[in-house]
Amino acid sequence: MIQVSNLSFSYTRQPFISDMSFFVSSGEIFGFLGPSGAGKSTLQKVLIGMLTAYQGSAMVNGIECRHRTRRFYEDIGVDFEFSTMYEKLTAKENLQFFSSLYEKKTRPIDELLEMVGLEHDGDKRVADYSKGMKSRLNFIKALLHDPLLLCLDEPTSGLDPTNSRMMKNMILAERAKGKTILLTTHNMQDAAELCDRVAFIVNGKICALDSPHNLIMSKGAATVTYTWIDNGEHSASCPIDRLSDDEQLKRLIANNCLQSIHSSEPNLNDIFMDITGRTLL
């Protein structure tokens, strides 16, 4: 679906996105994970044909992005990180308006509103919407024309846990229908849960690219931490795959002396720190 090779782009003279290469297959949820300012949105704007002054190649749906025509957008749905609605029109009017711009048949508006829990707010003006309602509305706007490729910029940011859950389920449902989804986020839980593969992006470069599972495995096994009392509290830890070599632990178990025992699996955040030397925030 997407094939990027040796892509470079900059807003100014200084290089920003430099020499990126990767591909995204059809039916995949692909995540760009990185701290804010890393260039995730910029990369997405190149892929949706909004920034055409790039070097290298970026092919989307068989079309080189800088040569895209207006037809290109019949098959691409974009959810920006900000609202792009007419504030004075109601939610329904906005969706009707944007539906009318497509040649192909669009999805029923009431159904989409219901899916994001806005069925009772469709006749309210967008100006009266809260921030979370606006993000849900903008999300379904991207789904209106049932696009092959969905580009979502921080879709769950600013949503409460319930709505975030609902949106993630909708994203997974789109994948189940065979759609390709490009997702930027600085939320590692979302990335780990949703993405088939993630690219770590820092300072305009891809530092790592793999499935969340493989990335987590690359850090090695989880560790077990245990505590016991012996003239005060002590604690020690040991990799989970070498517990049987830990004589001290064996003795503590044999004597029923353990106070507590925990295992901790590395998460994507730890991996991100390890690989890039930076936190996600």
């Binding site: 957008y73 974009v78 609202s83 792009t84 944007f98 040649e103």
Partner: peptide, 11 residues
């Protein structure tokens, strides 16, 4: 209201 962005990614 950022609607130019919406037009930019429409047909």
């Amino acid at each position: 209201q950022h609607t130019p962005c919406a037009f930019a990614v429409s047909p």
